[in-house]
Design a protein around this nucleic acid. Structure first.
Lengths: 323, 323
DNA sequence: TGACCGAACTAATGCGCATTAGCAGGACGA
DNA sequence: TCGTCCTGCTAATGCGCATTAGTTCGGTCA
């Protein structure tokens, strides 16, 4: 339509009137005019193939991004991810095609993995398959995990929540209120986040010189003599409160309960737990920022963000305690 | 590595051992073996370029897909969309790059529209720009709107909620309870959904022979003598309840209030309104199904799904009414 | 007048795949 | 012995762009 070559249009479209190549202003205007009239837009797929980048950030989750029911642990992360992707001018790709079989959870590398459609990828999940992680590393696919991850055949890029000092601070806070016997209820392993929380608890106990117990389940909790309980997740905390009340105990007068972070399981409680706030939105934002950095400069970023302590109403001084 | 051509690998990869082309079982197995060993996966971008399809469904929303605050009107739609995309084996692309300027809402065609990255697109929004719609039509981009849309230079493919008969049924229900003077509060235009609700109200009023008023705002509502109020949105209903109570009115004893569908605005109320349930999840699912149909067979599907009436606790008989 | 140069473009190539046409070689029938 | 057909494969092309290496043409200068 303009009588110029495809090359010229491409050049004009990308504003490449710099040193190497030159286009006369008249030609440029003419091309731009036609582009405006016809509403021509370069095919992003072809552009991506040639440029070797698609301006797409992938978001991988093992479960549905949009959960059908109730409280959504991952939502705040996604809010941050979307905000930051918007600023970066990238689209977000949700790997909904990664379903394996009915009932099974998604897999990053399942058959025709379409992960390479994205320039890079943000990984979301309480745990992430170690094989998936190590394959991502060996294949050199740029990614950032939301949540700290142990090495998987090499260091994993992540932005996590800094649980150990946070939990430790909570232990110290409880100790300052006179608690001398505390219990951590939860696996303390499996997910990195659980291990980190238990570690913080252990450190805090050591630092304050109080007695610390680690119980895998609530069994024996009420006979343990603990006056402060650290629940691994919010849902655990809610369950413990229920049990305590059923035994006629008052929370926090008779028993203090601290919930370590939000819950990855659906839970409905309006208890204002003492504990901390995971900076989920910030983590999402930061993950995208780090991913952008990885794409531009490479590297294996590893960051931990501080959690904000929450006063709550489930932590009280030990009555008649000798301070 | 196998000593065969790229063509052969492509053929094996796609299981194209049918009529036209044939590959000997030995060769096939050898190729598959190497594929398994190396973990080779075809580049989806190149594949997309050649195949002219990406197995990506786009999701366009004018606001953030993951809203930062509170109640999320669009979430249930997205649940359905994700479910169905998963079944179709497609990935979902969120057009987060479509941001124009700080504070402005997204636009479908802004500069470098990347919408063609998707094979087709699902549109979500209370209203959708008419120019955007008509351009989608003229450019022949496959899409399905969630929510009925008026023609925009041609019929628009959509799956909507069937408001008119639903609202009409509510009017009849109110009439059966003795209400003889009813008011519709809301613009009744702007969005197709509002127009449809008002239309249903008007039809219902005509069919039952009661008096019907249309008020754009709540001004004058309490002097109108209406005993049943139809609020255009949930948020309006909540506001009206507040106002009524402030005037010392009891809902529903003194005034019945019906909320027409959920709210596109954030609202926090735990009132169990009489009204109906918009089948949002189903609409999301159906939109993806229809989009798949459009991609395979073309056409302009237009569907309306029935809404389920909700009994609620804000609709009561008129006291001392002559039935 | 011819060598040289820069400005303004374009031809050609490649990105990594899918697809089509065609080729080599063996079997088979006449 | 030759033509034909079938099997099993590959060369070549194109998808729509970005990019590189020219090419053309009109000055400029010696």
């Amino acid at each position: 339509m303009t009588g110029v070559s495809q090359t010229t249009v491409s050049l004009v479209l990308n504003g490449r009137a710099d040193g190497e190549v030159r286009i006369s202003p008249e030609t440029r205007d003419r091309v731009l005019q036609v582009i405006r009239e016809t509403g021509y837009v370069a095919d992003p797929a072809a552009r991506g193939l040639a440029e070797r980048r698609n301006r797409i950030y992938g978001v991988f989750t093992y479960e549905a991004v949009f959960p059908a029911e109730g409280a959504d642990f991952y939502h705040p992360f996604l809010v941050g991810i979307e905000e930051c992707a918007e600023e970066a001018g990238c689209d977000l790709l949700l790997f909904t095609s990664a379903k394996v079989e009915q009932g099974e959870r998604r897999r990053i590398f399942s058959g025709e993995s379409r992960i390479r459609l994205a320039d890079g990828c943000v990984l979301l999940g309480r745990t992430i398959d170690r094989d998936d992680l190590s394959r991502l590393l060996t294949e050199g696919i740029p990614f950032v995990s939301v949540g700290r991850r142990d090495d998987a055949g090499g260091p994993v890029p992540y932005v996590g929540a800094d649980y150990p000092p946070t939990v430790r601070a909570l232990v110290e806070r409880a100790a300052a209120l006179g608690h001398r016997r505390m219990a951590y209820v939860g696996a303390g392993k499996g997910a990195e986040s659980f291990a980190d929380r238990l570690r913080g608890f252990t450190e805090g106990v050591a630092a304050t010189g109080v007695e610390g117990l680690h119980l895998t389940t609530v069994d024996g909790l009420f006979d343990s003599g603990a006056t402060a309980v650290f629940a691994e997740e919010l849902a655990d905390g809610a369950a413990i409160v229920e049990l305590a009340r059923a035994r006629g105990l008052d929370v926090p007068r008779d028993l203090s309960i601290l919930a370590l972070g939000a819950s990855t399981r659906p839970v409905s409680t309006d208890i204002d737990f003492a504990g901390f706030r995971i900076p989920r939105r910030e983590m999402g934002r930061r993950a995208v920022e780090l991913l952008t950095g990885v794409l531009e400069r490479g590297g294996i970023p590893q960051e931990l963000l501080a959690c904000e302590l929450v006063e709550g109403s489930t932590l009280a001084p030990v009555p008649n305690a000798e301070r």
